[in-house]
Amino acid sequence: MRAKIIYVITAAVLVFYFVLAGRQGITLLGMGTWITVPLGLSVLAMPVVGVWFLWKNTRFVTRANQLAGELEAEGGLPVDELERDEYGRILRDSADEVFARRKAETEDGPGDWRNWFRLAVAYRDARDTPRARKAMQRAIALHDGKAVQV
């Protein structure tokens, strides 16, 4: 719940920033000089890219949470079996061991979104965020019945 609150607050702050930047871009365009028009266009590009990025991330997180809910209802969420140090951080060897099992499961059943979801969690636990995101994107695509590029 805390992560959702932080995400909503961060998104609200970003939207506020986008509005402010957009207003500045429009003001610069309104001046109409040879220097302010290109500057205004570039300032307007930032909120457009930012809104697109925020939308894509929000959609990704929402879909991943929906898959987690569905997997939980099936009783298929991965069990937290990771060993941790005295500070609560995951031990690398433990994460690597679980990752190897999840990877083998995914290689045995590459067309099952559930395997890709669990692999994404294993990647995240192993602190490999880019691969975790790609694995989750594949899980979402497979769940939605979309063609997946290999």
Rank of each mutant, 00 (worst) to 15 (best):
M1W: 02
R2Y: 09
R2N: 13
I5T: 10
V8M: 10
I9V: 15
T10Y: 07
A11N: 05
L14A: 15
Y17C: 11
Y17G: 12
F18L: 11
L20W: 12
A21V: 07
A21F: 02
R23P: 00
R23C: 01
Q24D: 10
Q24W: 08
G25C: 07
I26F: 12
T27C: 00
L29S: 12
L29E: 07
G30Q: 13
M31I: 10
I35F: 13
T36C: 05
V37H: 03
P38Y: 05
P38G: 04
L39D: 00
L39A: 11
S42G: 11
V43E: 06
L44I: 06
M46R: 11
P47L: 14
V49A: 15
V49M: 14
G50H: 10
G50K: 10
V51K: 04
V51R: 03
W52P: 00
W52D: 02
W52Q: 04
F53W: 14
L54I: 09
L54Y: 03
L54G: 05
K56E: 10
K56V: 11
N57S: 07
R59K: 12
R59Y: 01
F60E: 01
V61Q: 14
A64M: 13
Q66N: 08
Q66E: 11
L67A: 05
E72H: 12
E74P: 00
G75T: 09
P78Y: 09
V79R: 12
D80M: 08
D80K: 13
R84H: 08
D85V: 07
Y87F: 13
Y87S: 12
R89A: 08
R89C: 01
I90M: 06
L91W: 00
D93A: 15
D93E: 14
S94H: 03
F99I: 04
F99R: 11
A100W: 02
R102C: 11
A104Y: 04
E105S: 12
T106L: 06
T106H: 07
E107K: 11
D108F: 01
D108R: 15
G111N: 14
G111K: 14
D112G: 00
D112S: 04
W113D: 04
W113A: 10
R114K: 15
N115M: 08
N115F: 04
W116I: 03
W116F: 05
W116L: 04
F117K: 05
F117W: 06
R118A: 13
L119S: 08
A120P: 01
V121T: 05
V121Q: 08
A122F: 01
R124I: 03
A126Q: 06
A126R: 15
R127V: 07
D128H: 10
D128I: 11
D128P: 01
D128L: 05
T129M: 08
T129Y: 08
P130F: 05
R131K: 15
R131D: 10
R133I: 15
K134R: 15
M136D: 05
M136S: 08
Q137D: 10
Q137A: 09
Q137Y: 06
A139H: 05
A139S: 09
A139F: 05
I140R: 09
A141Q: 10
A141T: 02
A141D: 11
D144T: 02
A147D: 12
Q149V: 11
